[in-house]
Design a protein around this nucleic acid. Sequence first.
DNA 1: CGCGGTCTTGAGGTTCCTCAAACCTGGTGG
DNA 2: CCACCAGGTTTGAGGAACCTCAAGACCGCG
Lengths: 258, 258
Amino acid sequence: MPAEPIARSPSGPDAVLRRLSGYAPLAPDEEALLRRITARPVPVPARTELVRDGEAMPRPQVLVEGWACRQRLLADGRRQIVVVLLPGDLIGLGQRRRPLPFGSVATLTSAQVCEAGPLRDCAAWGDGPPGREAGDGTGQPGTGLAAALWQARETEELWLVNQVVRLGRQTAYERVAHFLLELRERLAAVGRVQDERFSFPITQEVLADALGLSVVHMNRTMQQLRRDGLIEQRATAITLRDVPALISIADYAGARRL
Amino acid sequence: MPAEPIARSPSGPDAVLRRLSGYAPLAPDEEALLRRITARPVPVPARTELVRDGEAMPRPQVLVEGWACRQRLLADGRRQIVVVLLPGDLIGLGQRRRPLPFGSVATLTSAQVCEAGPLRDCAAWGDGPPGREAGDGTGQPGTGLAAALWQARETEELWLVNQVVRLGRQTAYERVAHFLLELRERLAAVGRVQDERFSFPITQEVLADALGLSVVHMNRTMQQLRRDGLIEQRATAITLRDVPALISIADYAGARRL
DNA sequence: CGCGGTCTTGAGGTTCCTCAAACCTGGTGG
DNA sequence: CCACCAGGTTTGAGGAACCTCAAGACCGCG
């Protein structure tokens, strides 16, 4: 289930480029590097582990198609999905000298993945053609791939913060609304939202594990959202029928307002 | 309430040095830089906002004494503490070009804080005397302040993952156990745990907001832990009476095993 | 001594969970 | 073509965890 009919929305490799160039303008050779990296995506079936939990130096990879997640398993089998990964997202860019329980990374659907080794140095050091602009006092990477990767990392942290707030202080109903809005924003950044409608290829069980709920309650909550006319689900796609209402319910502060 | 009698445990500025040098060996001039930065700590009362929510380029700071937190407030007044900050922790090292709702940073107790502007460039670029060692294929910062700052950032992400798992899939009882173990590990890294006993200067309300519980339930959960002989609380200090049991209850995987 | 902040306790309600079964759908093999 | 199966969704019923409201107890401090 390669998630999308090839003809329609932007192709996988494109997602990576779109996402990173959304953070900072890329030089031509940087774009070329990304194209080279994403040239030959490797198909991966659903439920495949891409990074083992505790791996110290995971292989850097890029998800070009399909959905994945970072998750942690408890000893008794409970699972918490820490963050959902979408096309264009980076995997395993972190580097630790000691194995730390960051959780494993696994595909949720069939997916396509590329090795992205070259990005690691770049992310770690602010390499890249535009030259470092350190010492300008701002510490702000100006442009280029390094800046984009830095920004991508910041954004990932934002997703984690969002997840904490959802799980800690929101009801099931609010959590789902908030989560859907976040997905919408992230998918829009790679051109995969049209008319508030996007692909939604995960089961309610996965959703439950992401939002800290039981499958049963997840199901009932989705029904409620449908009955309230906020969302509409058909096959493996979802439509947000009333975004302003969702934003209000979820108290959602995306990348825009604050 | 400066949290600690000055005579006893390591002094504030020391905490910063301890923590960073725990990640990577520092060059003498790097140590000197840190000492210079932490030379004149500024006292800050409890409940002071150090970073406003959405601030794009927060001033880099270092917490040398007292506790603080990153938190996000919902429109109706609910509060979620995203992560608790302890002596030696860094604040506002992130840099974003756009305001993002990362949450505000506020002190939980009276505290002492230092400006740490110089660290920003260092964190962003891997500056620092030892010279960059990019291109060695590993992408692993070898030694020095840059490496330590990178590692500190990774560790912060680990705290976020822990928080997500606690809030998403653990019971109140388990959450508290897990949280206390994390505090113990972090405080031990700056030499502030003796005989499984450490300063614990926060109210149950704060604890509740950190662990996504109501104050009342928080209280009852603490009582249960006490009755079970797992912890012992006196004034503003806490003792973990049975660490192995706590680890088992919380399914805790710290920096060591896995 | 009184006061504000924190902790504690009780009672009743809500949200969410578990267990269990039915149903629906798409795919597979006879 | 249909029976069957696996995975996913839906429903019902009862229970556990957690919440809210409200009041009382404790404690350091002015």
